[in-house]
Design a protein around this nucleic acid. Structure first.
Length: 419
RNA sequence: GUGCCUGUAGCUCAAUGGCAGAGUGCUUCACUGUGGAUGAAGAUGUUGAGGGUUCGAGACCCUCCAGGCACCCCA
C-alpha cells in the first residue's frame, strides 16, 4: 500500500457493508421508538464547554472530551453525550411543551479515550428519554423500550438481559447497615466495579471506606440476595409493569447495577450480554433534576443511551443482521452488443419507471463479464436482450441464485419481476 | 493518561540474524449468447514509519504511528 493519509485515531470508515448495518440498526431504533410514540429530534454536535460544566461528570468533560478554540478563541466541545443538550433544549422552551415529552435521537458523539474493543473516539448513540413524569410507570416504560429493542433485533433472553436496580433503595439498605451517606455513595461506586476487581482487593477497598467486617458481610449478603427487590415498592412496581408488557424474560433485578453518572437518582438499569464477553450495551436510569442546572425549572425524567459499537459486535456475534443486508437489489440489464445498447437502456428506464431498481453496464464488455459483475454484486436478476429476443419482443430473465432462465414478453416483464 | 501484547501481498498467515513465501482473493485465457465450478498463465510488497546495532535486519535495540487486551471512564 502506498502512503495513504491516515484516518483520525478511533474513527471508523463506513464502507457500504458497514453502512448497511448502521442503517439497519437505525431502522430498528426508529421502529421501536415510534412504536411507543416517541418523537425524533437532534441537537448540534458542537456545544459550549460551559454546558457540560454544570451537568456531566468531571472526568467526562475534563479528560474525555474533544475541546478546541474556535477562530474567535471560544472553547468549543464536540458533544460527548446528549443529555446536557437535551436539558438545554427543554429548558429553552420549557413552558411551550405538553408533558411528558417522549423524544428519541440518533447521532454522532466524541470522547477522547483510548480506543479498544467496543470503544471508539467517534461513535453513534441512540438516546431516548421520557421527560416530565416522575412515576414508576415512566421508568417501566423505558425499560420496556430497551427490552422491546432487544426482542426486535432478535436477541434472546438467554443471550442478553436488562438488569435493573434502584439507587434510593440501595442507599436505604446501606443506611440500614449504618453507612453514612458519603460511605454509601462510595460503596455504590465500588459495587459497580465488583466484577472488575479481585475479591480480596474489593474487600480491602470496602474496608478502606471504614466498613466493619460485619458491615462488609452484610453488603455481601445484599449483593447475593436475588429476591431483595420484593422489599422495594419501586422495584416491585416497575418489574410488575414490565412483566405485564411481556418482557419479564428479559428484565431482572441486579443489585450490582449502580451506574457511574451522578445525575441518576432513582431507577438505574443497563443491558449487557449474559456471558460478560462485551461491555455494557446500554445504560440508563431515572434522573430527578434534568434542567434546573441549565436554568430551567425542576423537571425529572428517565432515559437511556445505547452506543452503536458494542451492539454491533453483539449483533454480529449472534447473527442478528439480515442475510441479504447490503446486497444489491437492482436488476442488471446487460448490453448484448453496441447495436442493442439503446434497446437495453429503454428497458432499464421502463423498470425504473415502475419502481424497480435497474443497473446498466457503462463499459462495453462480453456478456460473460457482465454476468460475472452482476454475480459479484450479488444482484438478484440479470436481463439478456440479444438479437433473438429483440426480434420477438422477448427478454431473457435470469435468476442468479439458481441460474434459472425464463423467456418473458417485454410487455409482461414488470409483472414478472414484481411477482 | 498507565501497563502488557501485536503490526509481513487486498485478506489470513509463514520465513534459525543470510535470495521475502504459501493459501485465498485479484487479472487474463480455456468459454465468439451466460456468472459460481475446474484447469492454465500472470500481477501484487519501501515487511506500519523513522533512526540505530551488524559484513548482512522482516527478525535485535530506540522513538513515533496504528490495532488488541486490561486499568481509568463509560455508550
Amino acid at each position: 500500500m502506498k502512503q495513504v493519509i491516515q484516518s483520525i485515531k478511533g474513527t471508523r470508515d463506513f464502507y457500504p457493508t458497514e453502512m448497511a448495518r448502521r442503517q439497519w440498526l437505525l431502522a430498528q431504533m426508529r421502529a421501536v421508538s415510534e412504536s411507543f410514540g416517541y418523537q425524533y429530534y437532534d441537537g448540534p454536535c458542537l456545544e459550549s464547554i460551559d454546558l457540560y460544566a454544570a451537568k456531566s461528570g468531571e472526568e467526562l468533560v475534563k479528560e474525555q472530551s474533544f475541546v478546541f478554540p474556535d477562530r474567535g478563541g471560544d472553547l468549543i466541545t464536540l458533544r460527548p453525550e446528549l443529555t446536557p443538550t437535551l436539558a438545554r433544549m427543554v429548558a429553552q422552551k420549557q413552558n411551550e411543551f405538553t408533558y411528558p415529552l417522549r423524544w428519541w435521537s440518533f447521532g454522532p458523539f466524541w470522547r477522547y479515550e483510548r480506543p479498544q474493543k467496543g470503544r471508539t473516539r467517534e461513535f453513534f448513540q441512540w438516546n431516548i428519554d421520557l421527560i416530565g413524569a416522575d412515576t414508576l410507570a415512566a421508568d417501566a416504560e423505558l425499560i420496556a423500550v430497551a427490552a422491546a429493542f432487544l426482542q426486535k433485533v432478535g436477541l434472546k433472553p438467554d443471550q442478553v438481559s436488562v438488569r435493573v436496580n434502584h439507587r434510593a433503595f440501595a442507599n436505604e439498605r446501606l443506611a440500614l447497615l449504618g453507612l453514612d451517606p458519603e460511605q454509601a455513595r462510595e460503596m455504590l461506586r465500588l459495587i459497580d466495579r465488583i466484577d472488575k476487581l479481585p475479591a480480596d482487593i474489593w474487600k480491602e477497598r470496602a474496608l478502606d471506606l471504614g466498613l466493619s467486617e460485619a458491615q462488609y458481610q452484610a453488603v455481601q449478603a445484599i449483593l447475593k440476595d436475588q429476591d431483595l427487590w420484593r422489599e422495594s415498592t419501586e422495584l416491585r412496581g416497575i418489574l410488575e409493569r414490565v412483566e405485564a408488557m411481556g418482557f419479564g424474560d428479559y428484565v431482572h433485578y441486579d443489585p450490582s447495577v449502580t451506574r457511574g453518572l451522578d445525575y441518576y437518582t432513582g431507577t438505574v438499569f443497563e443491558v449487557s450480554d449474559n456471558f460478560g464477553e462485551f461491555r455494557a450495551i446500554l445504560g440508563g436510569g431515572h434522573y430527578g433534576n434534568l434542567v434546573a442546572d441549565v436554568g430551567g425549572k425542576e423537571l425529572s425524567g428517565v432515559g437511556f443511551a445505547m452506543g452503536d459499537v458494542v451492539i454491533d459486535l453483539v449483533l454480529q456475534k449472534y447473527n442478528c443482521y439480515p442475510e441479504a443486508l447490503g446486497e444489491g437489489q437492482a436488476v442488471f440489464v446487460t448490453v448484448f452488443d453496441e447495436s442493442l445498447e439503446l434497446e437495453s437502456l429503454k428497458l432499464a428506464a421502463q423498470l425504473r419507471e415502475a419502481g424497480i431498481p435497474a443497473m446498466m453496464p457503462v463499459q462495453t464488455e462480453k456478456l460473460g463479464k457482465q454476468l460475472r459483475f452482476a454475480d459479484r454484486q450479488q444482484l438478484p436478476f440479470v436481463l439478456v436482450l440479444g438479437p433473438d429476443e429483440a426480434a420477438q419482443g422477448l427478454v431473457m430473465v435470469k435468476k442468479l441464485a439458481d441460474g434459472s432462465q425464463t423467456l418473458v414478453p417485454q410487455s409482461e416483464l414488470i409483472g414478472h419481476l414484481k411477482s
